[in-house]
Design a binder for these strands. Structure first.
Lengths: 312, 312
DNA sequence: CACCCTATGAAAGATATTTTCCGTTCGGAC
DNA sequence: GTCCGAACGGAAAATATCTTTCATAGGGTG
């Protein structure tokens, strides 16, 4: 398998980016699992399921355990972002130590139909916290920085998203508008394409899609890409079709889902974090203009509130 | 050097006894230091001083670093109770991971204009996690339960919100629609009032406002209230004007804000958690109809995605 | 049905670790 | 001062482990 040039579009971006990856390994496994082959999935599963146990094994041992070959184990390690098995093993040892010492993996249970409401609150909060941690750990700061730079210098910004992701897109636009940037989040797919046609170099288009394969979102991004705009994809599938047309890929984390906890919920949390990071990054870069713009919009809204904010 | 039987007296017993040794490595080094030769002490010192750094080195590397030979490194590892250097290294990696995870509260500081992008990510994630924990802790499950019950029995549901809260309102509506309920989130304040007039007993109106004093949101809630609908307020100010017209008040948490981190960010996180709880609660109560409705909407959207979700 | 292309494992090749073995040094005894 | 013994330390051989290469089998496509 040949090494692919860094910067080349498409699947090269998949495992790359995160340096060695710290501790959010389970999340990474979940994110990358779909792009793995069957054998590699077996290995990844074993690793995510029992870090401590796997850390005690040699390549050969792990290969036998999973019924595969050494080569496959090494390939899996590579995909997860490590230079080789040796390093994966070290990371695994670290993970195991953390798990054992620190936190309780107790509340991991799924939400059941008959859970009392208090449990629902606790579980949802816990899961979303987990999602945030995973996302933060897995976010490629280089890509993020590049996206921020592009945004800060953009003449005009389009954000595409549909359904739940559409709300995230609008959230980002609302924020960008507040710091004086020109941003749109067309919700009509046809309008989105129409908008995209207007983009040129120095403009930025952002596509937000959990699945990475939402046609209505990919299409405008493609158009923007072909018109020379800088394109960014915020997706949970770093190997999905959407990344074909993305200069920068920001990966959101994928949490396990269940019937009562649709994937949309955690992907939204993850997407919002990414979007917040983009916003703050841009605000930093354009601080001179962003700060006054922010307070101006603040004041403009003040009188929309009742004279007495408080009863007492 | 011959292997000595376990249990034999003398220096062999030194490192033995403790299984592989967990984390109190520094202590062990100190204890055993006297029984070490000069070269071994240098190695032990390096290991105790910088576990993370040493974990990254091979035997040869560590030998060079300490100006000794591989053999000495291995001997030291043995003395510390490990079968060989490989295992010491794994323990070291674990130790390093633990140490690192320990110092989490360092990011508590506010986001500064010149923070590197990685810090921004960490701080935002941390803050949002905090917000979630606060919200979950402060949420009144009785009020929540009452609101859920009202929603589950509602003929029709209106959700009012404006600006950032408007997106939360839409998020809730999107979800409720998916489980077969009839819900609207009018974004135009006039339309909202027009909608509210149509509500009657058994209907539910939800107002989402962080400040608790957004006129455009209070007004429709008041109308709904006066028409006999059950009203719910999701607000960060449990004493704000909005609660006058609310049968049930759900309090969101208010995080400290700063210039680069507007309140809208954490209030949104908080509101979303509340809204998710409402949704899951309702889904539980109406499971019989909710479950099929959910999967139906799932399937209906499937073909909106590109045929190849994955490249391979 | 022929084709290509990917995934996979066996085995060769490269590294890292462990062991062996021998020269060196240091302390004490004469 | 010099001789002896025992422990120390390192070079290099031996082994284990990891990585790469390559041939093959399987699955989908035209």
């Amino acid at each position: 398998m040949k090494e692919i040039f860094p910067g080349s579009p498409g699947q090269a971006a998949a495992g790359r980016g995160a340096p060695p990856a710290p501790a959010a390994l389970a999340a990474k496994v979940r994110t990358l699992a779909p792009s793995m082959t069957r054998s590699m999935q077996r290995v990844a599963e074993a690793v995510a399921g029992d870090p401590a146990g796997c850390a005690a094994l040699t390549v050969t041992g792990l290969a036998e355990l999973t019924g595969t070959s050494e080569a496959t184990v090494v390939r899996t390690a590579r995909l997860l972002g490590y230079p080789g098995y040796r390093d994966l093993r070290l990371a695994l040892a670290g993970l195991a130590a953390q798990q054992q010492s620190g936190r309780a993996p107790s509340v991991t249970a799924d939400i059941a139909v008959d859970d009392p409401i208090a449990d629902v609150v606790a579980k949802l909060a816990y899961d979303e916290q987990q999602t945030l941690a995973d996302t933060a750990a897995g976010l490629d700061t280089v890509q993020l920085g590049a996206a921020v730079a592009a945004l800060a210098a953009a003449r005009r910004i389009d954000v595409y998203g549909i359904g739940a992701s559409g709300l995230v897109a609008q959230d980002l636009v609302q924020k960008l508008l507040r710091i004086g940037l020109i941003a749109h989040a067309p919700s009509d797919p046809h309008l989105a394409v129409t908008n995209a046609v207007q983009l040129r170099a120095k403009d930025v288009a952002i596509a937000i899609t959990h699945s990475g394969s939402t046609g209505d979102v990919i299409e405008p991004l493609r158009v923007a890409f072909e018109h020379g705009a800088t394109t960014v994809a915020v997706t949970g599938r770093p190997d999905g079709p959407v990344t074909q047309y993305a200069d920068h890929v920001l990966t959101t984390s994928t949490a396990r889902e269940s019937e009562l906890r649709p994937a949309a919920m955690s992907s939204r949390t993850s997407q919002l974090l990414v979007v917040d990071c983009l916003f703050v990054g841009v605000a930093q870069r354009t601080y001179e203009t962003a700060a006054p713009a922010l307070s101006a919009s603040y004041e403009a809204l003040a009188h929309r509130h009742h004279p007495r904010g408080t009863k007492r």
